[in-house]
Design a protein around this nucleic acid. Structure first.
Lengths: 336, 336
DNA sequence: TTTATTTACTTAACCGTTTTCGTAATCATA
DNA sequence: TATGATTACGAAAACGGTTAAGTAAATAAA
């Protein structure tokens, strides 16, 4: 059975499609009595407008795309919840596009977006180097793009971030106050904005206390959990092993715990650990994990709000807006 | 600047739009030399087809919708990763629609889908009673629907579930082997398929050992974490408090830990805990949490695969397929 | 050589909504 | 009463890609 279209609805009502369309849009051109008739018939026939016909004609899709590495991560999943809350409120749909940390995949997703599939883009870039060309082109075509968390530093565009540098500073400072002198910094990528910022904060805290920064204390990790655990075990087995560890992303903190467990190292006695993390279980871990907790939900909400602001102002709004929402240091037992 | 369309591309190449369209689709009607010219020009002009024009004409959107309660939950986020992996492989997009456990929201999302926004639907129903009418109507209009995890029991449609009943049986049996005699079962909703199944398994294990099932041992919880913690503290403060707890969803297990911590109750000495959970941190909790671990990623993959199978077979495929992927009992310290 | 077939395109209709531009009819104004 | 506004609707042209049907030229078959 063919779906019921606006014309079928119109024929049933002895009206033109134009009138029905306007009635459904509550146009002032249509009499209240006709509007009522139309609404009733639409409900009776269970009419649902074809969104693609509408999108084609109006040149807007009522859809935003969220481009990010993965969803199975507390930060990202909470951010999506925040984004979706705003989008739903505005009557928009959310297309979730995962890059799996692959630059190539990110490229192709962004390129596709040129076709107008989404009216606006929220993006947290992948850990392989992101080519800004596609993003600039989108912006050029009038598709607003808002970054959240992992941004393109070289682009002057709207961004929602947390105070990464200061947070890392606070984390490092906290570890030093707890007596650490050899602090390893775990990272998943050297060319990620959040890595740069966090490493800067880390360096700053070190030098401020007269400890000189050693490049070898920055430990580049992978996206393979078992590889990381192996690497961490190797590092933690050396006799000049670190007495403090900063995990710059959630998964790495978990992997430090696993490595310590396998080596029978005691946290915080043997090594103190702090993680950038939004784990709801942080306080329930053994030992409870000291965290830099990011305002994930709020960052999602804010990024979405800024995107809708850009969508509503005609111009492709290159308003250089960097919004910083602070993270929180939550001291727990893993830093003794 | 207007976007470049297939007609602009055609004009540039001195061809008709039809030829360009066919060339891009690698049609046999077009000579290889022309195809090459078209591809080159398309790349040069950075042409991206308008997906909505295509969807309108072809009556398919290359999009699937995932309808679920939330994403900030290990099970759901891992399932989405599985779904997305398959969808990306098939060149499909994933629309994530959150019901926030509200039946009304679920209804309106499903109703919208009648317009053809998605070619197929994957759904894990919300904890308020789901009205199957909308789902049946979708199926009736030829939009395949596949359930995963939380299904509509009364509908004979394709479903991907885990062995909920047997898992709950194993969990209960395990607690009893550990000496528990008063086992509380925490649930978020009485009218959810997974609740029914899990409660059945729980009952079965009890009666098998000659312990009679008490309705008061089924504890209905809410979606408000603080309410639940308060309730749990009340229950755990009674002198005839349970000596074993089964948390039928992930969040509840975390809340049991919180309540015990606030009451200074020792797990597993004072109360043993087992949770249906996909937390990566389960083994790192204090104490490590015994879990029924669901194959979330695999369930997502499987559900998506079945959906695509239905999409490819013309008929609206009401193949009554119930696929059961077993969960795993992982014994850890919380059941001592 | 004539006819049939294949090749490589083009024309035009179509998908379902929206929107511009009319146009009758009604009402108010001078 | 003639003129201008207003109200309530309709006709038709978009939007951009796809596809059925058609066609001229080249090739094959009779």
């Amino acid at each position: 059975m063919g779906n019921i279209t606006i014309r079928i609805l119109a024929r049933e009502l002895q009206l033109s499609a134009a009138t029905v369309s306007k009635a459904l849009a509550d146009s002032h051109e249509i009499s209240t009595s006709t509007k009522k008739r139309v609404l009733e018939m639409a409900a009776a026939l269970n009419y649902t407008p074809n969104p693609y016909a509408s999108s084609l004609r109006r040149k807007k899709s009522k859809t935003i795309a969220v481009v990010l590495p993965e969803v199975a991560d507390s930060f990202f999943s909470q951010a999506i919840d925040g984004i979706e809350a705003i989008a739903q409120d505005k009557g928009y749909h959310v297309l979730v596009c995962l890059t799996h940390e692959r630059a190539l995949k990110e490229q192709s997703i962004l390129h596709e977006m040129l076709g107008g599939r989404a009216d606006g883009i929220l993006i947290s870039v992948c850990s392989e180097t992101t080519n800004p060309a596609a993003i600039l082109e989108l912006q050029g075509k009038g598709v607003p793009v808002v970054f959240f968390d992992r941004v393109c530093e070289e682009l002057n565009m709207t961004k929602v971030v947390t105070d990464d540098r200061n947070s890392a500073y606070k984390a490092t400072d906290h570890l030093m106050r707890c007596g650490c002198r050899e602090i390893a910094f775990l990272t998943i990528s050297e060319n990620l904005s959040i890595s740069h910022e966090r490493i800067e904060g880390y360096k700053h805290a070190l030098t401020e206390r007269g400890i000189k920064f050693k490049k070898t204390d920055i430990i580049p990790c992978t996206h393979q959990a078992d590889d990381n655990v192996r690497l961490l075990k190797k590092i933690l087995s050396k006799k000049d092993r670190p007495d403090g560890i900063i995990a710059s992303v959630e998964k790495l903190a978990v992997q430090v715990y696993q490595a310590c467990r396998e080596l029978d190292l005691k946290i915080p006695e043997d090594v103190k650990v702090i993680g950038f993390s939004n784990l709801v279980t942080a306080s329930l871990l053994n030992p409870s994990l000291t965290t830099i907790t990011q305002p994930a939900f709020e960052m999602g909400r804010t990024a979405a709000t800024l995107l809708f602001k850009a969508l509503n102002s005609k111009s492709a709004e290159t308003s250089q807006n960097v919004l910083v929402i602070p993270s929180e240091l939550q001291v727990r037992d893993s830093t003794g």
